[in-house]
């Protein structure tokens, strides 16, 4: 049998993970649904004249998705922080690829599907209730259920929700890597490390922009740069080929996540207990 990946072992690993954690997962789902109901009731009480606004629904969806998703991903490999659980995990006869793929399946695919399903279940219920009971006494416009895949996110008008979902997968992968990397307090440590990395990147870009680039500014994205020549009285437009822009976009949107998975794989392979 292939020692790198076997579909049979992979499916066994999924069954094992489910058997080991189903009680915790089911309780978490119920807890999340109840919290969501409490939250929506709170928003209705705060603003009873326009209950269940679509902005509230969509912001709730994305804040909860990112918050709970990152926390769940940061806890996936927490067993490795305990000697007893770590031994149990590492000695299961499955390859590191299968173990990483199982983590991706649970923290990204299954988490997103279950989260969306639970959110809609509660959302539809709350929208129906608020439309039925609250608006029947008040002349208020009835709100509909939001489609999170088509909604415009107000503060980020230029970003489609599908792109936000791609960012979500990247964030999940960052926290998954943090979970393999840090034996304890992986959520907090990953948050701190992510801030440090982003701050350093920001500083690097700032330094490059301020001190390395000639005086001027970007025009229509990052592929065109106008160099100001005050003395000569004539500006120059420097353009790089469009494919570089496409490539940068592709890398940022699609390549970082698989790269993080590959790093997680190697980190898991070299994990010792």
């Amino acid at each position: 049998m292939n020692q790198f990946f076997s579909f049979r072992r992979f499916s066994l690993l999924i069954s094992k993970h489910w058997a080991d954690n189903k009680k915790r997962y089911l309780l978490s789902v119920i807890g999340f649904a109840l919290l969501l109901i409490v939250w929506f009731i709170f928003t209705i009480l705060v603003d009873p004249h326009s209950p269940m606004q679509q902005e509230v629904q969509i912001l709730t969806f994305f804040f909860a998705l990112f918050g709970t998703g990152a926390f769940y991903a940061s806890q996936y490999f927490r067993d490795l922080g305990s000697r007893a659980k770590g031994i149990n995990f590492l000695l299961v006869p499955a390859s590191a690829v299968e173990k990483i793929l199982c983590s991706i399946l649970f923290t990204i695919v299954i988490f997103f599907s279950v989260f969306t399903a639970v959110f809609y279940l509660v959302d539809v219920l709350m929208v129906t209730i608020s439309n039925q009971f609250l608006t029947s006494h008040n002349p208020i416009r009835q709100e509909g259920v939001i489609n999170v895949f088509r909604a415009a996110i107000l503060p980020f008008d230029g970003i489609s929700t599908l792109n936000v979902l791609l960012i979500f997968f990247t964030v999940q992968s960052i926290f998954l890597l943090g979970s393999v990397y840090f034996a304890k307090y992986s959520f907090i440590k990953t948050v701190i490390c992510s801030f440090v990395v982003f701050f350093l990147l920001f500083c690097l870009i700032y330094v490059l922009y301020e001190y390395v680039m000639p005086r001027g500014g970007y025009v229509n994205g990052f592929t065109s740069y106008r160099v100001s020549r005050f003395n000569a009285g004539e500006d120059h437009l420097v353009q790089i080929p469009g494919w570089i822009d496409d490539m940068i976009y592709f890398v940022l949107m699609y390549a970082i996540t698989p790269f993080l998975w590959v790093v997680s794989y190697y980190r898991l392979k070299e994990k010792q207990v």
């Binding site: 049998m1 007893a84 149990n88 000695l91 006869p93 390859s95 590191a96």
Partner: peptide
């Protein structure tokens, strides 16, 4: 830690988890 190796080695550690 190949699966074929792990199938044939079983460890009962002092601190264990079930």
């Amino acid at each position: 830690r190949l699966p074929i190796f792990l199938q044939d080695v079983f460890m009962v550690p002092e601190e264990f988890y079930l």
